[in-house]
Nucleic acid binder design. Sequence first.
DNA 1: ATGAAAGCGCTAACAG
DNA 2: CTGTTAGCGCTTTCAT
Lengths: 330, 330
Amino acid sequence: MTKLSDVAKKAGVSSTTVSRVINNYGSLSEKTRAKVFSAMKELNYQPNSLARSLQGKKTQLVGVIFPSVTNPFYAELIEDLENKLFGADYKIILCNSANNSEKERSYLRMLQANQVDGIIAGTHNTNIEEYKTLDLPVVSFDRHLSENIPIISSDNYQGAQLATKELIANGANQIYFVGNVNVSPNENPTDLRVQGFEDTLKQHKLESHYFSVKTDNSVAIKKMLIRDFLNNHKVDGIFASDDSTALLIINIAKELNIDIPKQLRVIGFDGTKFIQNYFPELSTISQPISDIADLLISTLELRINDKKNYHNVTLALPNKLIRSSTTASI
Amino acid sequence: MTKLSDVAKKAGVSSTTVSRVINNYGSLSEKTRAKVFSAMKELNYQPNSLARSLQGKKTQLVGVIFPSVTNPFYAELIEDLENKLFGADYKIILCNSANNSEKERSYLRMLQANQVDGIIAGTHNTNIEEYKTLDLPVVSFDRHLSENIPIISSDNYQGAQLATKELIANGANQIYFVGNVNVSPNENPTDLRVQGFEDTLKQHKLESHYFSVKTDNSVAIKKMLIRDFLNNHKVDGIFASDDSTALLIINIAKELNIDIPKQLRVIGFDGTKFIQNYFPELSTISQPISDIADLLISTLELRINDKKNYHNVTLALPNKLIRSSTTASI
DNA sequence: ATGAAAGCGCTAACAG
DNA sequence: CTGTTAGCGCTTTCAT
């Protein structure tokens, strides 16, 4: 690996000078600047990031922690984050927490050890105390991590209102919330989906029903639970906590010869490009992924550049209804 | 950030000693070892990876370059890689090349600058000369990158045979290959899909037809092209170059009231868990993602640990047919 | 069994 | 405008 001093030697100047042209500071004559540049080209020189960071420069590394990358919603959010962070000259260390607290803790330690400039976390694991003591800028997506960690999310309450109203408007009145029903409400923004659902039904003098399918159940188990549910419950409208669950419900309804939307209306939540492209019949609530990514990054950069200024935000971006055939009027 | 010398001071020993217990080498008395450990606990000490790597230790960082993370196949491969690399104490720097050669080059430079131990690349961009001069262990998925870079892939030829036979066996005889038809064949393993398709049809005395839908077309354009294609061609069997394309074909066939599989049999390629879970009707060729990940990693580790030993492999793992309703016999 | 000192590749005062 | 020097946090000879 060729190093700075090699360039210096070749250019016939001191290391300092080379460093100056790399970092473009201080005053240099055009002549030396040119000499150094050509020496760099010739040796195909790449500054060693490790060394630069060691004496104080930022690493331009950001830890990105999400439960998984195979869920299309996270995938699209991560892809957008990657794109935008690349533009801002950051690299991503990808951490899948995978519903595994121990793994998440381990990643947190590792990110510290690697001197990342900051962390974007959208984890599901709860009670990771480490976030409270972490001496690093952190921004959270959709979760309460610790007192002084800002939370960015879509407006789950408003989204749930949109979804529930859509079901009601199209004639449903035995309406279930199916999916991740949280036991400890009001801990996370996502619990607001349940709240918005319940309030909207109440306003329409309808009863709210719940059927719990945990996120960490395997798909086989989920399918079984849903099959059992559809077979044994009087239900004509379902607000699924996410699009994946909605897809499962629709598949099984088809299997059971339940007509959608005549007998059963279904609406999901997330509204990824993927769903819109490959499953356009699904009505859903679309989260503003690009805005979320923008906000996560700008909030993080604020913290990175000004560690004192802890204006402790909780920001919720509005969702949009995507109306399609699974909630069409009969 | 507490540092090694802080621990040393607190434990009443020299930095050298602390370094010894961290790296577990040389001879230490049980007593000092204990003292140091408790000092580390007390100060919640995290060694600085940057500093360690600077004098020669590995960074335990691997660059992972794929076109995107929103394609379920790449997502599942990346997730598997992430899991396994985590187990081997590596962290991932995620690079989406996004059909953008300039971005890929930039990432390559950056990965060098960050002293990653190695790179796993599954790119689509061609003619990145940088791979040829890169002084870093690289392993490729499914692409020819440079003479001395090993290629791991599934057996595209055998997979295409399986798919084509399945179409024929179920009565198709106007059979098209739809999707990414490469212009410069035999450059990449994926071109073997076309070869396997053609050879199999020839063996059955059938003509092979092609309809090209480029990977980098937008979904809207793809849909339009496919709609046009289905409307204007006599076709009763399609081997789609990947499952996403297959899904699009199925959606549009439905729209056009073409009965699948009665009038048209469709088979895809990739066979992700995602497809199996959420679109179980699709017949497809399933690539052994877990084996691919294992092989990518073990091959990379071989190169990392023994830079001389360049046994220049090209390994193709067998695919499996997943038979489902889109190719069912009438 | 432990420590002193040099150095990894780079940057940042401080001189001149 | 340019160079000398010290030092970032850690590891590693070489002593003792």
